[in-house]
């Protein structure tokens, strides 16, 4: 394993461009590189902007999903690197799991480390998990695991089967309605650095086979967790599967039901009822 420490967060826009230019001819096994940054303190203005876009209040703690945007540029750097076997453009986020071990205070110095693992076989391609570990003063406080699907890609010989389903019971019709505006992707891109073109405009999304721009899965997850503000366990595991994309603009509903000290939740299209997101939140 090689561990490389970065002085600052890499520019995701430049990385997306580089990854697009070098998309062809990739293959082989996952690199065992770990990328890291140490002593990262989230900028309060960035946190406030992120909170505003996702619907979190300003509490003095980082929104539970916020460490994802701290670690995301490192994950993109890992994926943009030529050693990464899958082409970054066109990767689809299909599952995200967050373990928030305790609330992280604003102003806490955080050590970030990301890596890729679990190259797996999926019925329509291959999946890979981009993992992140966030520590404060040497103690892990937050873990993230994002599963991405590469359609048409082939997992190496002997790879395990992909695991993209989450649990949870039956849910009622959603009581919470969101009108997701046409610029939702651009707004979230602005606060997360996730400038994947499939989220930014209809034109750029079409280039990757989507009929319109689609909402970021992590924004949907963040906003769903924000809707449970004040009702979430202090330490939690959130496990979310991203199903059908939310085309912009859309109206969606959020359904929630208490379960095992946490919540089951689903995000559906308000008109068609198609499921966009399904998830569970449990105390950790």
């Amino acid at each position: 394993m090689t561990r490389r420490e970065l002085e600052e967060a890499p520019s995701t826009a430049a990385l997306f461009a580089r990854a697009a230019a070098t998309a062809r001819g990739r293959g082989g096994a996952l690199p065992d590189t770990r990328l890291a940054r140490t002593g990262v303190v989230a900028d309060p203005a960035d946190v406030a902007a992120y909170a505003r876009v996702c619907g979190f209040g300003l509490t003095g703690a980082l929104p539970v999903t916020h460490p994802h945007v701290l670690t995301f540029p490192l994950q993109v750097a890992l994926m943009a690197d030529r050693a990464f076997p899958l082409a970054l453009p066109g990767l689809v986020h299909v599952r995200n799991r967050i373990d928030a071990l305790r609330p992280i205070g604003l102003g806490e110095a955080l050590d970030l480390e990301v890596w890729a693992e679990r190259f797996a076989r999926h019925r329509s391609g291959a999946t890979v998990d981009l993992c992140a570990s966030v520590s404060a003063a040497g103690v892990e406080v937050w873990r993230g695991r994002s599963t991405y699907l590469a359609r048409g890609a082939t997992a190496p010989e002997g790879a395990p089967d992909a695991d993209v389903e989450v649990g949870g019971g039956a849910l009622p019709d959603g009581a919470v309605h969101w009108r997701v505006p046409a610029d939702a992707g651009r707004r979230y891109a602005g606060v997360s650095g996730d400038v994947n073109p499939i989220h930014l405009s209809g034109l750029t999304a079409k280039a990757f086979g989507f009929k319109r721009a689609i909402a970021h899965g992590m924004w949907l997850e963040a906003r769903a967790l924000a809707a449970l503000e004040g009702r979430l366990p202090e330490a939690l595991t959130a496990d979310v599967a991203f199903r059908k994309p939310v085309f912009l603009p859309s109206t969606v509903t959020l359904a929630t039901a208490p379960a095992d000290g946490g919540w089951d939740l689903a995000l559906r299209n308000a008109v068609a009822g198609t499921e966009h997101l399904r998830g569970t939140v449990r105390p950790l």
Binding site: A45, G57, L58, T59, G60, G230
Partner: peptide
């Protein structure tokens, strides 16, 4: 500067 009345009141209640 970035906090709303609701942010501050909620934090205070909590």
């Amino acid at each position: 500067a970035s906090a709303s009345n609701q942010d501050m009141l909620t934090a205070t209640l909590d």
